[in-house]
Design a protein around this nucleic acid. Structure first.
Lengths: 309, 309
DNA sequence: GGTGTCCATAGGGTTCTTCTATGGATGTTT
DNA sequence: AAACATCCATAGAAGAACCCTATGGACACC
């Protein structure tokens, strides 16, 4: 016969309360149940743990020792189970997330704010990474969830469309292109352009878009951080082409985001996680918050979430 | 549904071995058993702990965390149960014992040697105390077991006769009283006597014995420690009256123990423990060793152990 | 001597547990 | 491509475990 946790609880209760009867009440079982459980425990160990009498029961030396140790153990056990249930209830937990820098400025903060409202106990570790690094992070298990761009088919990943991210021209307030609705790509080509690094996924997209129309791109500035690009644009040094997800509406009117007339100047921003791995409850809560944020205020053109391989 | 230790073991095994099938082998159960146990655990927590696939099962983040924590917990649990079983098997444990100084020199060392042979893992904490202090030590629970003298009726104590301890005259080798068999009490009265403190149980006994015969006792020396008394006797300063249990046969021929002709010059040495409390397995082992020692070599006149209130 | 408290026992019903046998899904080998 | 191997899930049934109510015996306290 194995020792069960119930037997351990029974011993702890009887030793603490000094009586089978009171322990039974406290545990919500009948008194004979405790008689049986404790006899079972004593038989399993081959030890007398309690000296019974008409005035109650006192533990033997071993009974006392065991009760104390079992008490700590059962406490730890319950704590552990409790924590696990907190996680299950999305009231606690940790999500490790990789995210594109662009979404890090708008959608993600919005989503985190929503998450904090609904699930204040969930912590999120954010790792920003450029688009092409993201699949590796997920595959290596360094993050559970990622916000990236739709790349080629990745059998090891499951993805879900989060939002369609249009590139916008970022101009200083009062610029000639501002306020006139969508501008054609050719109009942009005439401006001094502020673009990101040639390796960045945004830049690859921009280059390809210009190339498809036979136009060459010669940026006036190349920067690493989108925030730098916005700073330059605000200073009137040129027009930046950035994903709309990176342009915080709160920056207006110092800089304005102007739509660009180019159907292919957009990318899919997707959620990704390892195929065959279920998302933890905290991750699911974060996903829900991200969907809401992507559908919500900051991006009126936001698409409905769908699912793709 | 409560979480059981079996479920915890199941999770630990599956996470360690990466597969239900292998874990089932390792645990000695069928594979469906594990399916059921783990589903139960997952339901109890409301969490997915394992992502199953055809190539085995990998834990989710929570599954991993829980498996590690459960692993430690189950390890502690098993250790605890194992230790308890060691104690039950008299292979380990601790006995706190109070003992008269007299038995501390002969019977007790002999018993401890026997105990060490049979149960090398049992440790004994010895507290020597004069006879009248012993009942209080037992009643207060400071010791589990005691070797004392038969005192008045003590309802809180259970006692068991260990040996009948005759007083002997301790004389230096070559003394006139040596070698002539038992000496009458009157012969002793003519000698310079080495006795213990008036409060000691031995002295009380000696005084009473002399008084019963109308003889007055005027000791030449009064000492606290029996070893001092023996030392004085060896130095030829007088004749000591001591319990035979205190006189180590190994001291011969420097000093000799000579029987005294006085039926009442003896005392009962008893084992005592709290009434209504069971003795721990280590204590039982010690009791057995003490009985053997009391019956064995050092005291050929040793009585059979009996039981009294 | 009655009464109350405490633990043990007995018997029975319900729930759990575990087993064997089998099936479905998915890689792997021939 | 088909056969095979591996892995986990499901089903059904037997057995064990568990817990309850009812009751009894021991002992202390009025």
């Amino acid at each position: 016969m194995d020792v069960s946790i119930r037997q351990a609880r029974a011993l702890v209760a009887v030793v603490r309360l000094g009586s089978f009867t009171r322990a039974a009440q406290a545990l919500g079982v009948s008194q004979p149940t405790l008689t049986v459980q404790l006899r079972g425990l004593e038989e399993a160990l081959g030890l007398t743990l309690l000296d019974r009498s008409v005035r109650g029961s006192v533990p033997t030396a071993e009974g006392q020792r065991l009760a104390e140790a079992f008490g700590r153990l059962v406490g730890d056990f319950d704590l552990l189970v409790g924590e696990a249930r907190e996680v299950a209830a999305q009231r606690a937990g940790l999500v490790r997330l990789a995210a594109l820098p662009s979404v890090g400025t708008t959608v993600l903060p919005e989503a985190l704010a929503r998450l904090r409202e609904g699930s204040p106990g969930i912590r999120v570790m954010i790792r920003d990474a450029v688009a092409h690094r993201i699949p590796a992070l997920v595959k290596a298990g360094e993050v559970e969830l990622a916000i990236g761009t739709e790349l080629g088919p990745e059998p090891e990943l499951r993805t879900e469309r989060l939002l369609r991210d249009r590139m916008v021209a970022v101009v200083p307030g009062g610029h000639a292109l501002a306020g006139a609705g969508a501008v054609p790509l050719s109009a942009l080509a005439a401006e001094p352009l502020i673009l990101t690094d040639p390796q960045s996924s945004v830049r690859v997209l921009v280059d390809r878009c210009f190339a498809a129309r036979g136009m060459a791109v010669s940026p006036a500035y190349e920067v690493t951080y989108m925030s730098t690009a916005i700073g330059l644009a605000r200073a009137g040094l040129g027009v930046a082409i950035l994903p709309s997800s990176a342009v915080d509406a709160a920056l207006a009117p110092a800089v304005l985001a102007v739509p660009v007339e180019a159907a292919d100047l957009e990318r899919e921003v997707v959620l990704a996680w390892r195929a065959g791995r279920s998302l933890s409850p905290p991750a699911r809560a974060l996903v829900a918050a991200l969907r809401m944020a992507a559908r919500g205020e900051p991006h009126p053109a936001g698409p409905q979430p769908g699912s793709s391989a």
